[in-house]
Structures are given as structure tokens and as C-alpha cells.
Design a protein around this nucleic acid. Sequence first.
RNA 1: GGGGGGGUAGCGAAGUGGCUAAACGCGGUUGACUGUAACUCAAUUCUCUCCGAGUUCGGCGGUUCGAAUCCGCCCCCCCCCA
Length: 300
Amino acid sequence: MKKILVIAGLTASGKTSLSIAWAKKLNGEIINGDSQQVYKGLNIGTAKIREDEMDGVPHHLIDILDYSEHFHVKAFQERCREKIDEISERKHLPILVGGTGLYLKAALYDYIFEEENDEQDDFKDVDTQTLYEELLEQDPKSCEKIHPNNRKRIVRALNMAKQGLSKSERIEKQSQKPLYDIFWCVLAPTKNLIDQRIKQRVDLMFDAGLKEEVEKYFSHKECRQYQSFQAIGYKEWAPFFEMDVNLDNIKEKIVIHTRQFAKRQKTWFKNQIPSRFVDSLNPDEIETVFGEISEWLKES
RNA sequence: GGGGGGGUAGCGAAGUGGCUAAACGCGGUUGACUGUAACUCAAUUCUCUCCGAGUUCGGCGGUUCGAAUCCGCCCCCCCCCA
């Protein structure tokens, strides 16, 4: 099995700097595992690594899409696996770095996605309860896991059921085992520290010209419908284009949303991934983990 | 000094005699998650608890079977006029 090092973790946990340090030591190449950093131009708000920070380490799946484009797990899964193959062939270590748990897991495990027609707007006039009742007929098993209020998930499951294998059928076909030899490293500093870092980072983003970046790409109303505008750091600016708003309010919202996001990430990794958390801000712990990685790499 | 408005849970804000431990929003906490996942959704959020009990709506006192809601006094905040 191909070996892959995963550096996952909460937003603002220090993935970027650690990934560079380890990539250099391990002769690795970095694959971005972050749903928003695939967009060209959206640099400040997504906390994307800068060219000068890369320090010569090759980076993949960054800046691969125009900010107007749609992106999703299946696309990530395909591209990520391609990159893993390429890098492995070069005898380098693929290092997957990012915070989008679903993307990472879908690429690394045998999640099944099928070709589907693009947009399914059939449901837009139907209320959620009716949709849920329909799903109850089409794929009752999935209903057990989808809350009746969760329209987005219900619509998705309905689309799957209509177009091919239903959601539950797909899941049954999967082994739920990794396709690679993975070393999972989930960076999760203590709550206090992460909150502090988030605050600092948002301040830095504003200093670095977040406002200008947002204005550059999202001044036109149509652009604000793009998926890329839904990202934290961007969507909070919506009122800014409509009326006079206090920038501090926007900043505060970004901080709060980022904090809530970090919590969701923590919950996800804790319960979805067989890995322990690493306090990325504790040098001793980092060193210990690096030792374990070195051992793991020696195993054949 | 005169006139008016107001003080409700961490914050904002409903409620103007019993159905109110008190709507709703935000924030907090916990959790779910297989094609928008930086998404979407759920539970919980006065205190102690298993049912249940005990304290709340600026403060003190009163009316009432019953008060966040009515009355009196006091404290604080905002606006207008002096």
C-alpha cells in the first residue's frame, strides 16, 4: 500500500508551517485538502500558503479553479488520488494537508461516487417535509441518518436514489477501510489557544487587505452566488455591499464563524477518524510524533 | 428643575395578572455528517436533580387565591426642554 502522511486539523492550528517543515525532512510533496484553497485569487481569506512560504516544496490542488466554479467531493477525490499516484511514482511522500474532513476521508477511503447529471432543481417548490416523505419511500435506510429538517441532505439522497445507486446502497458496497497506508495526524491545540490564534489571524487578514480582496472578486452581485463566496471570511461581507457597515462587525463575525468551524472540525475528526489529536503548538509533542512517523516510514 | 422613554436569563429582544422558568434571535456547550462540508442539520443553555424541587424579570415594600405584568417609595440609564 502506498504511504500517505495526513496533516489534518483545525483551522488556525498551524498545519501550514508544520507541513513545510516535515515535507522538507521527509522529501514530501503537499496536496491541499482544503475545500476553499482550490480557488485562484482567494488567498487572504482562505489563509492560503504564499509562494515564498512554500520554500521549494511542491504544492498540489491549490489554485486549480476559477472562483466562479463549483467544486465538490467527487472532484476532489479523483484529483487527490491522481496526485497521490504521481507523487508516489516520483518516490516522494504524499502529504495531504487540510481541514476538510469529508474530502480527506472520501479520497483515502473507498467512498463511491457516481456520474450524475449536474443540477437537480426539481425540488425547489417542494417543502422539506414532503421531500422527506418521498425519501422515506425511496431510501428508508438513509432516512434513519438524516434529520427531517436537513433539507440539503434530503435533496442529495433523493438525487442519488433517482439517478443510480441510492445513498444507503453505496455505503453498503464500501468496505469502510482505507485504500492507503495512512499516518493520520490531527492538529488540535487547546481551545484557548485556537481561539487566540483565530483572533490574531483574522486581524492579520484585515491588515493584509482582505477588504480589497473581497471587493476585487465580489463587487458584482452575481459573483456573490458563487460557492467560493460561501466561505468564512467572504460571506460575512455581504451586507458591506448593500449598506454602510462597521468593519469591526464583519471582523467579529468572521472570528465567531471561524471559531464555530473549528469546533465542528474537532467533532468531525474526533468521531470520524481513527487518530489521536496532536497539540501542534507543543514542540515536544511534535517531536514525538515525528519520531513515530519516521518509524512508520521504515515499515515496508 | 420640567417633559418623555426605559431597566427581562451571557447579549439583543418579546411578554403588561394565572396557560411564563419566561417567545424569538445571537452567543455558549454537545453532537450528526458519504457530491455546495469554511456547507447543512440536531440537542442543550437560571440552580440542584430521575420524576421533581428551588430561586428569578433594577431594589425594597404593598395589593391579590395568584404578579415580570397592578400600586408606593427608592436606585440607575437614554432623549427632549430649561
